[in-house]
């Protein structure tokens, strides 16, 4: 029977009279049920990020602080008479990559130390937790990358090619390795790969600074955009069901 026919048949049937008593008792039951629920305390974004600072962001910030001190020292030296002879653009690239690596010990930490399950069952969802951690750690990343950009000097293209691209590429590569490689070996593979990237970028940065390597702004922007998309996909994947199942040892 078509739904149209069902509807017209129902419409033609006499509707029973509404019993006010029934309605009232239903409402009372609903109200009682609703009031018996435990009220959910709202969690603001500020609170979420703030409470991640101590446990997640602070250790990363300590590492980044050490890196920042070195960057500032290098910046100080670069302003002296001898500074012109130093490979400052290459140092800026190296600093950007090291800034990306400071978060590496904390990728996949929950998996390594068996905290995944307990965190997954807590009130704050994995997605919100991952985002709040990213925001907390990201504050330090922004400061370090800005310092590296100041160290680099030059125009926006220089900053894009020498600082933004190595930072984003290293972050994307390190996070990809930590998600896809085995739990115990992922930090090592990520560091090895990042070391190779750092060495490569040192060479490329020097060639770029000497004008021997030309990079078009659109190519640099495309690489940055691809790295950002890769990072977004990786964060999404890290909170996905498939990844959780893998972390818990299913399907291996």
């Amino acid at each position: 029977m078509k739904s149209r026919d069902i509807k017209s048949a129902l419409r033609s049937m006499p509707a029973p009279a509404v019993d006010a008593g029934h309605v009232a008792s239903t409402l009372a039951l609903c109200r009682a049920g609703y009031c018996a629920r435990r009220p959910l305390r709202p969690l603001t974004v500020r609170e979420l990020i703030g409470r991640q600072l101590r446990f997640t962001a602070l250790p990363v910030w300590l590492l980044q602080g050490a890196l920042l001190s070195v960057i500032c020292l290098v910046m100080g030296v670069s302003r002296t008479v001898d500074g012109a002879a130093l490979p400052i653009p290459a140092c800026a690239s190296l600093s950007a990559e090291l800034a990306a690596l400071t978060a590496l010990p904390f990728y996949g930490r929950a998996r390594r130390y068996g905290m995944s399950e307990v965190e997954a069952a807590a009130r704050v969802s994995r997605t919100r937790l991952a985002l709040s951690r990213m925001a907390a750690v990201g504050v330090g990343d922004v400061v370090c990358v800005s310092a590296a950009a100041l160290l680099c000097g030059g125009g926006w293209l220089d900053v894009l090619v020498l600082v933004a691209v190595p930072f984003l590429l290293t972050s994307a590569a390190a996070l990809a390795v930590s998600l896809l490689a085995e739990r115990d070996s992922s930090p090592f593979i990520a560091v090895g790969l990042s070391a190779a990237l750092a060495a490569l970028y040192w060479t490329l940065a020097q060639r770029f600074a000497q004008g021997l390597l030309r990079v078009s702004p659109s190519a640099a922007l495309a690489v940055c955009a691809a790295a950002v998309l890769a990072l977004a996909w990786e964060y999404r994947f890290s909170t996905s069901e498939k990844h959780i199942e893998k972390e818990l040892g299913y399907g291996t």
Binding site: A181, S185, F188, G192, L193, A196, L200, T203, R207, L212
Partner: peptide, 28 residues
């Protein structure tokens, strides 16, 4: 036999070859 050793060795070898080729193809 450790997977990370193999992967890292491959990365190192690949990088060495890449850098040698960069010297050639980026010769100016």
């Amino acid at each position: 036999k450790t997977r990370s050793t193999v992967i890292l060795a491959v990365i190192a070898m690949f990088f060495s070859i890449f850098l040698a080729l960069l010297n050639i193809f980026d010769n100016y």
